[in-house]
Amino acid sequence: MSGVLTISQPGNSVVTDLGRFRGPRYGLPVNGALDQFSARAANILAGNEDNDPLIEITALDFRLRTDTDILVAVTGAPVTLSVGGRTCPQWEPVSVRAGETLAVRGMTGGLRAYLAVHGSVAAPVLLGSCAPDTVVGFGLKLAEGTQLEVRRSVAPIRQPYFDLPLFRLGLSRPEFGTELVVDVTDGPDIDEFGDSAGLLFSSSFTVSGRSNHIGLRLGGELPERQSSAELLSRGVPVGAVEVPSRDELLVLHRGRGVTAGYPVLAVVTSMSLDILAQARPGHTVTFRRTTVAEAAGALRTATRQLENLRAAVTTVFGLLGIGAQPQWHDLAPAVGS
């Protein structure tokens, strides 16, 4: 028995993880799943480690076929998830049987969905991460016919009673709206903008179509730098809010170049970067001022929530015999992979 997933409709999808944390010191962006909470949740729901490789599906419909029984979880933007023609819940573990097709369709509310497979998938690694880097040309972008080796098979889990939902793991899911509230802390260069910095909080901004994993561009009433002194290039954090032109704000995301010579007006919190990862062109963004201590507190609350989810998953999987070593069916490497 081989364990191969075959991509039948790639849409716009890649294999990624939480990011290349050793990259920035060498001038490479961290990259990795743009919505980190959803990616972690998908892996936890599939019984994986947070940082295991998983599939990030951006905007477009996606389909794959498996030739072995697998257990998966789909999180992130609301989609229609179907397995072998049956509609299945997101944010829950789902069994897919050998020969069945899994389809992710109709993504409208957000921009990115995450598909984790129990045991994860094999992917090439650069500096400790499989996250694609479009600048150096690294990464596994999925195409029609791409075959992914799955490392473990899980026999189908069936709910014997009236097709009641199999799992109720109780994770409170992020909301996906069109009017986004994004928390920021003051940037190290906020003083450069004088009183105009207040414009960041008093008006709303619209996500431009020229946004991607490197950064989002937002139109609106822009704060203006008060001095014109040349700045030395500095390392800039993911989430940095800059005003590089008179047209748009730039909010750097995980694909950002690690150094830049623009003053950093504000920095989007880690939690709110997940919200921006789901922002579509045309969505509106209002910025809300917070502190580093509050932002870190919110992040730790979300982390505890994920830890509770992991505990629940471990218990349930234990009862079902998933994750108990003897039942984990480790597959031999697929032929030709």
Binding site: P24, V30, R300
Partner: peptide, 20 residues
């Protein structure tokens, strides 16, 4: 996670889940 030094500054990146 690591440090990004340039001319007069260094950006120190960390995991706010495990440290502060």
């Amino acid at each position: 996670y690591g440090a990004v030094p340039t001319y007069d500054s260094v950006l120190v990146e960390f995991d706010a889940r495990s440290t502060s």
